[in-house]
């Protein structure tokens, strides 16, 4: 049987996890930021609070 190295399974596992989780990351923001990545719509309110602050 062909051997498969452990890193390949890591890739598979990460991909599976991503397939389960990443598809829910599409942003849909309630505070002025409306992003529909898949639908191609894209609107950002300049005043939107986006929840990132950056490194102090």
């Amino acid at each position: 049987m062909k051997r498969v190295s452990s890193w390949r399974w890591l890739i598979l596992a990460i991909g599976m996890a991503a397939s389960a989780v990443a598809c829910t990351i599409t942003p849909g923001l309630s505070v002025g930021l409306d992003v529909d990545y898949y639908g191609g719509k894209f609107h950002v309110s300049p005043a939107a609070h986006v929840g990132i602050t950056g490194r102090p």
Partner: peptide
Amino acid sequence: AQRTGRPVRSAL
């Protein structure tokens, strides 16, 4: 992610 054989619609 394509190597997983599963759809991954969004990267991370």
